[in-house]
Simulated scan of single mutants.
Amino acid sequence: MENILALLPKTISGKIQELPTPIQDSLEEIRIRISRPLEVIARNEPLFLPYIVKEEDAEQFMNRIANHSFYTLDEELKKGYITVDGGHRVGLAGKVILENGYVKAIRNLSSFNIRIAKEKIGVAENFIPYLYQNRWHHTMIIGPPQTGKTTYLRDIARLISTGLKDKHIPPMKVGIVDERSEIAGCVRGVPQLQFGPRVDILDACPKAEGMMMMIRSMSPDVLIVDEIGREEDSTAIMEAINAGIILVMTTHGNSLEEIQKRPILKEILQLEVFERYIELSRMNGPGTIKKIRDGRGKELTFKAGVST
């Protein structure tokens, strides 16, 4: 939080610091909208603070993010978000500038959504018996937004890269394709979150293209990718499988049955690549494990409702 508070104008950071400590510790988002009340979200519950955001607040916030050099953020502005120190992501909304039908930039910024990166070291360790049996299984993590998919993905990447001596699991080479700079939270190419010693990251790179680049140039043992679901992902997935690379990925959805109905994901699943499915929910907070299934969709014995 220190990184975020340092970027915010005192008018806003002061209001956040006035919150009770339990709320500060559980913050998920800080939403700043010009001429509207300051909003925070904690444990999936919105809370409006007694402060109306002013235009100068937004200007000061953006100046600090850009370090008074906006031209350096051109690429980020095209994507609609900026990753800041600590791996936190700032979503942007305002007037979109188009060029040949594509987004060129966002100007007149009026809304900001600060998504607070939650790094939870060790949350995936309890699931190693399900994900590793003589080798790591091809795994898909399924869940709606803000259910902890990326949190699990990070920790799985860390565990694979580090290995576990007590379980006789050797460290392996991990390639992360981080299209939205959300898994590793890279700033200027440097990951802001903890991984093991054998991790290589392609930051802000389209998934399908990034997977092919990793296969050709970095020879990973395991590929980590978030939010698959586009048509071109299928080809890259098969290239990785044919190269003997293990895949660990996430996708949006409430259950395996739901994503099987989506045309593009159905095509990927019909490849019968994935050997484990982890279904997440917010039943007991972000990171609640709803089900763990094998490659045929059969539910494995597991105590549901365990939260990170």
Rank of each mutant, 00 (worst) to 15 (best):
G80P: 05
Y81M: 04
Y81K: 03
I82G: 03
I82H: 05
I82T: 01
G86Q: 05
H88K: 09
R89T: 05
K95D: 12
V96Y: 06
Y102A: 13
V103L: 01
I106S: 05
R107Y: 06
L109T: 03
F112Q: 00
F112I: 02
N113L: 00
R115G: 01
I116A: 02
E119W: 04
K120L: 15
E125G: 01
I128S: 06
I128C: 07
I128T: 13
I128H: 05
P129S: 04
L131I: 12
Y132P: 08
H138M: 10
I141F: 02
P145H: 03
Q146C: 11
K149T: 12
K149D: 02
Y152E: 00
Y152K: 02
I160D: 03
L164V: 11
K165F: 14
I169W: 01
I169Y: 00
V174F: 09
G175P: 08
D178P: 11
R180S: 12
S181Y: 06
S181E: 11
I183S: 07
C186P: 13
Q194D: 10
F195A: 04
F195V: 01
G196R: 07
P197Q: 09
V199Y: 12
I201W: 07
I201Y: 10
L202D: 05
A204D: 15
A204S: 15
A208K: 07
E209R: 12
I215S: 12
R216K: 11
